[in-house]
Design a protein around this nucleic acid. Structure first.
Length: 528
RNA sequence: GCGCUCGUGGCUCAGCUGGAUAGAGCAUCGGUUUGCGGUACCGGAGGUCACAGGUUCGAAUCCUGUCGAGCGCACCA
C-alpha cells in the first residue's frame, strides 16, 4: 500500500521526499513536510508551495483528498483503493504482507556455551533472532539461521571437571573440593547420574576420564539447549562447531599475515586491531601456541564470509559490546568488507514476580532457567515480552502480569481481539466468503480508520525488519487490537444494516492480527 | 581513568535520518451495559523531554560541555 502511495506521489513531484504519518489520522493517512524544504529553494512560503503541490493530485484515483495544512501536504486515500487492497488481502492470506526482497543474510544468534541449559538472558536474543528470521523470510529475504557452538576451550573442559566432581561427590560419596569457578547448578548433578547410566560407574574413577566426560556432557547439553529452544518454537538451520573449524587456523592466519596485520611480541602473536579503532591490539596465539577465543572467531567469520552472503547479523549479549570492534577489525584484516556485519545487542533482563526482583547470574547457581519461565507463563507470553521492547534497552517484567486474563496482559488482549472477531462471525452465521464481495464504501470515519490500521501490517513488517526492531510489530498488534475493541464497543455488528461491511472489515483486522502474531512465533487464538 | 549505551509524567517505555498541540500502557481519580463475551470501552488529572550552551525558519531529536545511571575494559568464553 505504501509503495503505491510513494510511487504515485513521486511520479507527480519528480523528486525524493519524506512520507510520514500525520500526528492525527483526521489530517489524512499520509503526509509530507516537503514544502518546508522547498521553501528555501523557491523562496516562497511553505504554505504557498503546499497549496500549489496539492493541486497536482486532484485527478489521482488512489487519493480521495490531498490537502495543504500549515505547510504540510496531507493525503487521504480513497475508499475504493482501500477496499480493493483489503479484498485482495483477505482472499490471498498466503501472500498477504509478503515482499520480494532478495538479499541473502546469515543470522547468528543464541550461540550459548554448551555447558548448561538456556537461562532467561539467552531467551531474549533467541526470540528476537527467531522473529527477525520469520519476518525477514516472509518479506523474501533469504535468511539462514545459525548457532555457533563453543565446543572448544576451557568452558567445556570445566563442564567435564564439574561432572566428574559431582559424580564423585553425589554418586561415589567421596569427599570433594569445589573450586570457585566450577559449574554447580543442579543440572550438573542430574547429568552426573545420567553419565553413570550411560557411561558406567567407573567414569568417575580417575581423572583420565574427564576429557571423555567433557565431550559427552557437551553433547548432552547441546541436546538440552535444542529442546529448550524447541519449547518456544525455535529451530536452527545450522549448528557450527568451533572445534571443527580449528583446523583452518593456518588458512585464516595466512590471510591476516598477507595483509600485514599481525606481529609477534613476547612470544605471542597479535593483531593490529588498534588500526581500526580498537582500544588495544589483541593476542590471537598465546605463548604456548594455543589460539585464543578471538582466533576462533576469526576462523568462524572467515568461514562465514567465504560462504558469500550479502549481509551478516549477529545477536550478542550486551556484555559483549566491547568485542565488536575487534571482530570487525579482524574481518577487515581478512580482506572482507566488515560493514556487512551487523551486531545487535540484547540487553539484560530483570525478572520480577509479584514485585519481588530476581537476581540472575550465568555462572553462579541462582540463575533463572528459560524453561522455568516457559513453564510458568507459556511460550507465547515469553516471546511477547521479549519482543515488546527494543533489544538494547533494559527489560523489566513481572511474571505475574502474564498470568492475568485482562487488558494488563497484552498477549491476552490481542488474542481476545482475534477471538472476538471469530465470535462475531459465528454469531452472524456468515463466512468470509459471504462478505468478500461487499464494497467497503460509505463507511464512518472510525470504520475507515480501522480498515486503514489493519492494512498497515506490510509496512510495519518492512520497517520492523529493516530497522531490526521487532517491537514495532508487537506495538502495532497492541494498537490494532485496541482499535478493534474500541470499534466493537461503539458499533453493533450482528443485525445492523452494515453487518456485511463490518464483517469484512473485521476479517481484515483478524487477518493482520493473525499474520502478525504468526510472524513473531505466536498462534492466534480463535477462542478464549 | 578509557570506551559503549542511555537519562522523556509516580512506574515501564514510544517518539530521536530535526517539523503540525511531546504519545502510550500501568498506577490513580471519575464514568459506560434493558446490544454480537464489560475478560471490554470512555474521560480527568499528571511532563522545565537530566542540566547549560550552540546550530536554524523550527530541537525531545543534531553538536559541545556538565551531572547521573548501566555495561564493558583478559592471553576467560
Amino acid at each position: 500500500m505504501k509503495k503505491r502511495v510513494l510511487g504515485t506521489i513521486k511520479n507527480e513531484l519528480g523528486r525524493d521526499f519524506v512520507l510520514e504519518k500525520p500526528k492525527d489520522l483526521s489530517f489524512g493517512h499520509y503526509a509530507t513536510p516537503i514544502a518546508f524544504s522547498l521553501a528555501k529553494e523557491f523562496k516562497k512560503s511553505p504554505m504557498f508551495i503546499a497549496q500549489e503541490l496539492s493541486q497536482k493530485f486532484s485527478q489521482s484515483s488512489i487519493f480521495q483528498e490531498v490537502t495543504p495544512t500549515n505547510g504540510y501536504i496531507n493525503f487521504k486515500l480513497s475508499e475504493a483503493f482501500l477496499d480493493e487492497y483489503a479484498t485482495w488481502a483477505i482472499g490471498n492470506e498466503q501472500s498477504y504482507a509478503k515482499d520480494e526482497q532478495s538479499e541473502t543474510i546469515l543470522l547468528e544468534y543464541v550461540s550459548a556455551n554448551p555447558t548448561g541449559p538456556l537461562h532467561i538472558g539467552h531467551a531474549r536474543g533467541a526470540v528476537i533472532g527467531d522473529s527477525l528470521c520469520r519476518i525477514g523470510q516472509h518479506l523474501g529475504y533469504k535468511i539462514t539461521s545459525e548457532y555457533y557452538v563453543n565446543d572448544a576451550g576451557n568452558q567445556v573442559e570445566l563442564l567435564g571437571l564439574s561432572l566428574y566432581l559431582a559424580g564423585r561427590e553425589h554418586i561415589l560419596k567421596a569427599p570433594v573440593q569445589w573450586p570457585a569457578e566450577f559449574y554447580r547448578g543442579e543440572y550438573i548433578v542430574d547429568l552426573a547420574y545420567v553419565a553413570k547410566e550411560e557411561l558406567g560407574l567407573d567414569i568417575f574413577d580417575g581423572e583420565k576420564n574427564i576429557a571423555k566426560l567433557s565431550e559427552w556432557g557437551k553433547d548432552k547439553m547441546l541436546e538440552l539447549i535444542k529442546s529448550n529452544l524447541l519449547d518456544v518454537g525455535i529451530v536452527f538451520e545450522n549448528f557450527v562447531s568451533e572445534k571443527a573449524l580449528y583446523g583452518k587456523w593456518n588458512e585464516s592466519f595466512k590471510k591476516l599475515e598477507h595483509h600485514g596485520k599481525t606481529y609477534e611480541d613476547g612470544g605471542k602473536i597479535w593483531i593490529r586491531s588498534t588500526d581500526l579503532g580498537d582500544e588495544k591490539d589483541r593476542v590471537v596465539v598465546r605463548e604456548d601456541g594455543r589460539p585464543t577465543y578471538l582466533a576462533g572467531d576469526i576462523i568462524y567469520h572467515d568461514n562465514k564470509f567465504q560462504r558469500g552472503y550479502d549481509r551478516y547479523i549477529n545477536i550478542w549479549g550486551a556484555d559483549h559490546h566491547g568485542y565488536i570492534a575487534r571482530v570487525k577489525a579482524s574481518i577487515n584484516f581478512l580482506g572482507y568488507d566488515e560493514s556487512k556485519l551487523e551486531v545487535l545487542l540484547a540487553q539484560m533482563v530483570s525478572l520480577l514476580k509479584g514485585g519481588e526482583p530476581y537476581k540472575m547470574s550465568k555462572r553462579a547457581g541462582n540463575f533463572i532457567l528459560m524453561s522455568e519461565v516457559v513453564k510458568e507463563i507459556g511460550s507465547d507470553a515469553l516471546r511477547f515480552v521479549f519482543l515488546s521492547k527494543k533489544s538494547d534497552t533494559h527489560l523489566e517484567f513481572d511474571i505475574d502480569v502474564f498470568k492475568q486474563e485482562d487488558s494488563n496482559n497484552p498477549i491476552f488482549y490481542i488474542n481476545y481481539a482475534h477471538a472476538r472477531i471469530n465470535q462475531v462471525f459465528s454469531k452472524s452465521q456468515k463466512t468470509i466468503k459471504d462478505v468478500l464481495h461487499v464494497k467497503l464504501e460509505g463507511m464512518s470515519e472510525e470504520a475507515q480508520n480501522l480498515l486503514f490500521s489493519a492494512l498497515l501490517l506490510p509496512e510495519v513488517l518492512e520497517d520492523a525488519f529493516s530497522s531490526r526492531q521487532v517491537q514495532k510489530v508487537t506495538d502495532y498488534l497492541k494498537n490494532l487490537a485496541s482499535s478493534l475493541h474500541k470499534f466493537y464497543n461503539e458499533n453493533r455488528v450482528v443485525g445492523s444494516e452494515k453487518e456485511e461491511q463490518y464483517l469484512k472489515l473485521f476479517a481484515m483486522v483478524g487477518l493482520s492480527l493473525r499474520v502478525g502474531l504468526r510472524l513473531i512465533g505466536i498462534e492466534a487464538k480463535t477462542k478464549m
